[in-house]
Design a protein around this nucleic acid. Structure first.
Lengths: 347, 347
DNA sequence: TCTGGCACTCTGACTGATAGACTGCCAACC
DNA sequence: GGTTGGCAGTCTATCAGTCAGAGTGCCAGA
């Protein structure tokens, strides 16, 4: 694949842009006459045809059949978003509107849901947001509360005041004082330590000393496991999937089914999103670039969202390849920033 | 609508059954010759035609056009499920298989998800299960734990040891003793009382005495609200929605979109499920009977699930009107029982 | 009451024929 | 040399027409 950016004339680029912009709005192959009208250049259709022929040679456009107009290829879109696109940042009013939707009182999970809902509402595509992940959560404190004869409620506070509950059945009735003692012990020893470390330490200790506290410690370990595991197995939230049904390139029921199955299955999509975490800023997969069959006719525009410069997750939009990238990109970008900011107040 | 059960001959009933059974498998209008072969009666197509004509008169079948076979109407299906259907209970092996899927260790929410997944997997339709609701949850106890200078973790235990957490920011730093005192007070006063009652009592008291404890009490109220609200605004879990894309009567993208939008919107579906709670046992909505346009070509088979004879929720299956009712009904029935049983061990 | 037969109807698939929308190429023009 | 108008060629979409297949309704006879 030769990077033929230099070979392509200014005029040809302008035409490619016009062609894509036109194709994005109505999804029909674009002919030379239409383009002559649209492109803004004062050229006859015949000239346009010559240029289009060059663009086809370069692989930026293709024609479905002899007497249809031209359609942008994946390579065409790629060139478009990489070098032709001028994204104008969202105007302040639009940004404020999004910010207003983020209620800082909301829990992280709700913020994430707001974000995906907003992405889909504004772009009229499908919005997708991964849940924020915290790496290396810290052990803060644990508390054991007696509930009934032999049932104890364990409360584990970790990281940024993330709380986990678990009810455990004990073999004998523990007094409140006993439980207090157990939690005091654990808190004094581990408060502020890395949760993962706490977990292994406890495990080791349990093997050595067969103490009365084993039950409590075991529970603490299990809860720590749960926090850590929740971390590992990431998840995402989607909204507006049905918006995709409006695009006739996706109207085939088989394709739709594959797509929606992938949304439900989550695994493949997560894997794809994972690749976006590492990239800096906006990341775009066009058509087959994703490598997943069900996304062949789709594009994905993503941006990581950060708090304190640490990437907590990714959000973005899934739509047909012919989406209005110049409109979608600033929206995704702004939403990522604002979600990061909203999560920041949670500190 | 005349209940013409008496007017319809034994033979006609048998034919209606054969017609529906045939139509269910391939979705094509059924002609007289096919039926003559299928029905098991030794009759010529001509005779069948006469009977079909009667059935059409009665509104049980209809023909899409002159020279197509007959198709069952909603009324036809209704008669079929009400009087023609002989549901054979699920065999023990199948039941065991379902039971095995329910891990009694799972939380209620996970059990519900297993159930919907199983319903969709076994029937190859969409499975739906409402979350179990507890009515009139009791206040059990509340606990306040200091986290940092002016942050307190509140833990509310209600009903069957349902736990709610909330972090509150206090204006001044509260000592552990102070917090202990507050929770002791509330627990002594309200333990075992109806949560709703606790809530109103607290509200009243707060208006009368402007005490230092207001902040704690306010939090307790808010958490109670959350428990109660979670109760009111029920929710459901679905699985296998994409299975519905396989049926050509639903292949129209517009219809699919309406349907999936309704699944996401939840409100209408919830309203429908609500009607199933009151009915005893299996409840079936066929086609337009539901009263919702997006379900015009769908049927819904539901059963309430109970613990200790109290209805906690509803589960069921959504599929095209031409579903194999005699197969689906026992599955829904058994799953409801088993889910109830699995939840029972949670007591 | 059941059945075979016949006329009739409607669908779906196939076939041309035609209009419309393009392209590609060529010769002329600036 | 770049640009243009014109023209031939090509592909699609659409519409009417035909035909086989499937099914019904009705009638007369068993």
């Amino acid at each position: 694949m030769n990077d033929s950016g230099a070979e392509i004339s200014e005029r040809a680029q302008q035409m490619l842009r016009a062609l894509i912009e036109r194709f994005v709005v109505d999804g029909q192959p674009v002919g030379s006459r239409t383009l002559a009208r649209d492109a803004g250049l004062k050229l006859s259709p015949a000239t346009i045809r010559n240029v289009m022929s060059d663009l086809e040679e370069l692989g930026f456009v293709a024609s479905p059949h002899t007497s249809a107009g031209r359609v942008p290829t994946v390579q065409g879109y790629r060139f478009f978003v990489d070098t032709l696109l001028s994204v104008k940042p969202l105007d302040q009013r639009a940004i404020e509107k999004i910010r207003a939707e983020f209620d800082v009182e909301q829990a992280p999970k709700d913020l994430v849901e707001s974000a995906s809902g907003m992405l889909s509402a504004i772009t009229q595509l499908a919005g997708i947001v991964t849940l924020p992940r915290r790496d290396h959560p810290l052990f803060k404190r644990v508390e054991f509360l007696p509930l009934s004869e032999n049932r104890v409620l364990a409360v584990l506070v970790s990281g940024k005041d993330e709380v986990q509950n678990r009810i455990l059945k004990t073999e004998r009735t523990c007094s409140a004082a006993e439980l207090q003692q157990a939690s005091n012990y654990l808190n004094k020893l581990f408060s502020g330590k890395d949760l993962d470390e706490v977990r292994t330490t406890l495990l080791r200790e349990m093997q050595q000393t067969r103490s009365d506290m084993n039950e409590m410690m075991m529970t603490a370990i299990r809860m720590a496991d749960k926090v850590l595991e929740k971390n590992a197995d990431e998840d995402f939230v989607m909204a507006g999937q049905t918006n995709l049904m409006g695009f006739h390139e996706l109207c085939d029921v088989e394709k739709l089914r594959m797509l929606f199955d992938a949304f439900n299955e989550k695994r493949d999509i997560l894997h794809l999103l994972d690749q976006c975490v590492h990239g800096e800023g906006i990341q775009i997969f066009i058509g087959e670039e994703s490598g997943y069959k069900m996304l062949d006719e789709c594009s994905m525009v993503t941006a990581p969202y950060t708090v304190d410069g640490r990437v907590l997750g990714v959000l973005g939009v899934i739509g047909p390849t012919r989406m209005a990238y110049e409109r979608v990109i600033p929206i995704v970008d702004a939403t990522a920033r604002l979600l990061g900011a909203a999560l920041n107040t949670k500190e």
